[in-house]
Amino acid sequence: MLLAASSIQVGSEQLDVSWFLLLGAALFVLGAIGVLIRRNPLVMLICIELMLNAVNLTLVAFSRQLNNREGQLFALMTMTVAAAEAVVGLAILVDIFRVRDLEDVDDLSELKG
C-alpha cells in the first residue's frame, strides 16, 4: 500500500480514504500537465478547473475521514472562486478574440516590458 490506510464506512462496506487522495493527486497532476503543454488559452482555463476539482475531492475526502464539515464548506468556497475565475477569464478571452485571432497564449506577449 502506497499510503497510510484509513478506512471509512460506506453502507456495509469499508472504503479506503487514501485512494481518494491518490485520485485527487493524479487529477491535479493531469491538470498541471495540461497547463504546461497546451497552448490554447481556453484549454488552459479548462485545465485549471480540473485542478480545482481535484483539490475539492481531497478536501471532501479529509472532511469525511475526520467527520468534520469544514472540509465540505471549504469545497463550496472553492467552487465559488472557480466560478468567479471562469467568468472573468472567459470574459477576458472573448474580449481579446474580438480584437484579434489568437492561436497561442504566446501571441499575447507584446505587453511584456
Partner: peptide
C-alpha cells in the same frame, strides 16, 4: 465520489452549479 463520501450537498452543487452552469458557460464561449 462525493456521494460515496456522504457529502450530499456538495454533490448537488457539483452537478447543478459546476457541471451545469460553469461548463455551459465554457460551451457558450
Amino acid at each position: 465520489l462525493f456521494l460515496l463520501l456522504s457529502a450530499q450537498f456538495v454533490f448537488a452543487v457539483q452537478v447543478i452549479v459546476y457541471a451545469g452552469a460553469v461548463m455551459v458557460l465554457f460551451l457558450f464561449v
